[in-house]
């Protein structure tokens, strides 16, 4: 009886200690992130020096340019993420047995800032850029093209190595052993790819892709540097709004950004659910 109570007390104390250890970072995050979201919601609903109004939201949904921005942003982000994931998967299968040097070379773009990759892309691929000069004219012009090919290119170059690292890390843990065991049981290379390799890499690939997708949906240094001026991405649209009307512009920008945040979170939730399907391969 006393033993049980003592044990319950000890467990409670351990729980309290863990909570105390988690508190600093979780409190900081809750304050900053919660504050940011509440702040943005407030700006979108209560323009400076005015009472609460839904005007900013109404403006947003009435603006055809915003609809274009949403479509353009989602399209380039999904395309970038899907291509990056495919490239990462292909590279992973090609180099999984290779040494550290190949992996380090392939991982080179990971610590490089996005804006830097965009700058390099402009130096090489812009009209009159180095590739243009070297080849005497490019078949397509990916920089500032209305389809956003430059954006996709920069994201794939930057994010495929990131996803590759995640996939290779998953393949490092006992995968070769399982693969050998499956081969000895008579599974063909294709069957092993489907039943052994894919289930191993699926969840890190999905988690990484969610991070990539969210970034591509929200960041705007790359579209600003290599994207077309029209249509804009959602973030660019918000940026332009703040430079217009000083009061209502801020509200519209905040509304647009909040919408983008909600969309990212919703997409992430859907992706996580889809990945949970046990026989999804």
């Amino acid at each position: 009886m006393t033993g049980t109570r003592w044990r319950a007390g000890a467990r409670w104390r351990a729980g309290a200690r863990d909570a105390a250890l988690l508190a600093p970072s979780l409190a900081a995050l809750a304050l900053l992130f919660g504050g940011a979201i509440i702040g943005a919601a407030r700006v979108s609903l209560v323009p400076l020096g005015q009472g609460p109004t839904l005007e900013a939201w109404r403006d947003l949904f009435d603006d055809p340019l915003f609809a274009d921005a949403v479509l353009f942003t989602v399209r380039t982000a999904l395309l970038s993420t899907a291509l990056a994931a495919l490239v990462a998967l292909g590279l992973a299968l090609a180099v999984r047995r290779r040494g550290a040097l190949v992996r380090i070379l392939l991982a080179l773009p990971v610590p490089v800032p996005h804006l830097l990759v965009a700058t390099v892309a402009v130096v090489w691929l812009a009209p009159g850029g180095l590739a243009d000069r070297a080849l005497g004219g490019l078949p397509v012009t990916p920089v500032r093209d209305p389809a956003g090919m430059g954006i996709v290119l920069v994201y794939v170059y930057k994010e495929a190595p990131f996803l590759l690292l995640l996939v290779l890390a998953a393949l490092g843990r006992g995968h070769q052993e399982s693969d050998e065991a499956a081969a000895a049981l008579g599974l063909t290379p294709f069957q092993r790819l489907r039943w052994v390799t894919w289930p191993t890499v699926r969840s890190p690939l999905v988690v990484g892709s969610i991070v990539v997708l969210a970034f591509a949906l929200g960041a705007f240094e790359v579209p600003l540097a290599v994207g077309p001026s029209n249509p804009p991405t959602i973030a660019e649209y918000a940026r332009e709004a703040t430079q217009g009307d000083l009061v209502s512009g801020q509200s519209t920008a905040a509304a647009a950004l909040l919408l983008s945040a909600v969309a990212s979170i919703a997409l992430a939730a859907i992706a996580v659910r889809a990945a949970r399907d046990p026989q999804g391969g």
Binding site: E180, A181, A183, A184, L185, G186, L187, T188, P189
Partner: peptide, 11 residues
């Protein structure tokens, strides 16, 4: 190839 040998392995 490994999978065509009809040999099972327990590791």
């Amino acid at each position: 190839a490994v999978h065509r040998r009809g040999i099972a392995v327990v590791f």
